[in-house]
Design a protein around this nucleic acid. Structure first.
Length: 509
RNA sequence: GCCGCUGUAGCUCAGUUGGUUAGAGCGCUAGAUUGUGGAUCUAGAGGUCCCCUGUUCAAGCCAGGGCAGCGGUACCA
């Protein structure tokens, strides 16, 4: 029988696409962020933090013809009716910060930043509405050395996290190459803007759908397994062949007698289309990617960074080189099904983002790691020490009148750098033992009337006790035998606890 | 947004052609055991059978509508 009162109780539940992160993951995540931070710091980037929300117009998310914030971002109105939005990445707030503080900043300005971002989209497996990014950006230079550096930074960060060389690749392309190819294919005019977007989306899906699927999307369209039809770009066979020709473009680096490296590009369109040298955007794009490849090869990153004309990235603001960090190994999930991790980070050059706020041109380039995705990958690779922190030593509250003494015991352990806590509940000894077990305590400290009278403390090694329990079937014997416990004088407490901790550190290491 | 699948205890699930008081395992709480986490045994708590409407003497089961979750797809700064 449910009362009306009960019906009014709120349901304890998470908003969809949100999640709680508990101690083991939180600790592993923090170690991971520390590793990435050290790499970013080593390249000279400075930390910056900005607020979770910004004025919506500063984030640049207005629909062209509507006075309301775009869907996809969480927005609300301030008391003065101005629209505010939760940040959906860390780049837009950076652009605002740089524009606002431009005169006082060193140029180029280099900063790193991590924190949660929010997107109001349908959540999926491994996709949440709140997630963490870790960005490094260089603002105020159009030097491709900045883009090349980001490729190396990405490789260093991923490797520092324990992903071995050969299990990941940093793929580089340029938006100008894509634009040039589309121009060559006859899609350069303004009226083809929509078609160009469709073409980019189709190319972006090459790794997932294969060449056949991309052909369908470039042509009439494609029907997926669920029966849903995706309209294609409507290109003719010759145009499709021209786009496909791009997949064969290559860049090689030649080292001359003087030790200087010169990039050499190769590729050609089918008959009836211009040569690549005759399309300015394409030429510039290949040149800048060639320079990046030459720079990373000179620094011995050539095995981890390579040109890939199918990299597209976001459609909205990239203007030059685009980079994507991809994991190339496969793993299996709990049910044994294969999982591909794919992209764990990306970025590129966005020359228009800061300029939105100022009249002058301020080029910028950046790279962003998708922290949660990378975390799942590390987990699948077994590169996370999730149990690196053991539970605290639990001091049993045997006698309430003696809480003062127990506090002294706790303090002694803490001063010796040992995590320790007094049982703070009100239940009896049995429940306290269960509590210590559940907390993952390596041992408990027992000081009841017997020990007090002798000036001693009893230490029970829970891990050793658990092991011994396998050999004891009879509960009476288990209980009365008091396995894995011993008593020492009060002043030997720290030493005794340390010996227990050391025993298990060895056993697990 | 579109397509498909699934909704029964905290979790995983069973539930007969529609038939009385809806079950199991695990988990949880307590006792056997007043100073001992495991094992064993016993007991207990825990249910809007997703919601609404309909069919029927009778609905967890049938029909219609809705909602939610999952999977795929689209979009993704």
């Amino acid at each position: 029988m449910s009362s009306k009162k009960a019906d009014k109780r709120p349901e304890a539940r998470l908003p969809k696409g949100m999640r709680d992160i508990e101690a083991p993951e939180l600790r592993a995540m923090e170690r991971m962020l520390g590793t990435i931070r050290r790499v970013y710091e080593s390249y000279g980037f400075e930390p910056l933090d900005t607020p979770a929300f910004e004025y919506t117009d500063a984030l640049g998310k207005f629909l062209p013809d509507q006075d309301r914030p775009n869907e996809g971002v969480f927005s609300f109105q301030d008391e003065d009716e101005q629209w505010l939005s939760l940040r959906y990445d860390l780049t837009a707030p950076l652009a605002r910060y740089v524009a606002q503080n431009f005169d006082g900043l060193p140029k180029p300005f280099r900063r790193y930043q991590t924190g949660p971002v929010w997107r109001n989209e349908k959540p999926g497996p491994g996709r949440f509405r709140q997630f963490t990014q870790f960005d490094a950006d260089t603002v105020g230079t159009d030097n491709v050395a900045a883009d090349a550096e980001l490729c190396m930074l990405a490789a260093d960060a991923i490797e520092a996290l324990g992903i071995p060389r050969g299990s990941f690749v940093i793929r580089v392309n340029s938006r100008r190459i894509l634009d040039g190819v589309m121009t060559a294919a006859g899609l350069g005019e303004d009226e083809n803007a929509r078609q160009r977007l469709t073409v980019l989306r189709a190319i972006d899906k090459l790794d997932r759908l294969g060449i056949e699927g991309v052909r369908e999307l470039l042509g009439a369209g494609r029907k997926d397994e669920s029966g849903d039809f995706t309209k294609g770009a409507g290109l003719n066979a010759a145009q499709i062949a021209a786009i496909e020709a791009m997949f064969g473009f290559s860049i090689t680096v030649e080292t001359g007698a003087d030790g200087l490296r010169t990039p050499k590009t190769e590729g050609q369109f089918p008959k009836g289309f211009p040569s690549i040298a005759d399309v300015p955007a394409l030429n510039e794009g290949l040149t800048e990617v060639g320079q990046i490849i030459a720079l990373v090869e000179a620094a011995d990153y050539g095995d981890r960074v390579r040109f890939d004309p199918t990299v597209v990235r976001g459609l909205e603001y990239y203007t030059g080189p685009v980079i994507e960090a991809e994991l190339t190994f496969e793993a299996t999930d709990e049910s044994g099904a294969p999982v591909r991790f794919g992209s764990v980070g990306g970025g590129g050059r966005y020359d228009g983002l800061v300029s939105r706020f100022k009249g002058t041109k301020i080029p910028a380039t950046g790279f962003s790691i998708g922290v949660s995705r990378l975390y799942s990958a590390l987990q699948a690779l077994g590169k996370l020490e999730t149990d690196a922190v053991s539970g605290p030593v639990v001091i049993l509250a045997m006698d309430k009148a003696r809480l003062g003494d127990y506090n002294r015991v706790a303090r002694t352990l803490r001063e010796a750098n040992i995590r320790a806590e007094i049982y703070l509940g009100t239940s009896g000894m049995k429940a306290q033992m269960k509590y210590a077990d559940k907390r993952g305590a390596p041992c408990v400290v027992i000081q009841g009337g017997d020990e007090l009278a002798r000036g001693e403390v009893t230490i029970k090694d829970l891990i050793e006790g658990d092991r011994l329990s396998g050999e004891i079937a009879d509960h009476q014997a288990w209980r009365e035998g008091r396995p894995a416990q011993f008593s020492v004088k009060e002043n030997e407490l720290v030493e005794a606890v340390r010996s227990v901790l050391a025993r298990h550190a060895k056993a697990s290491g």
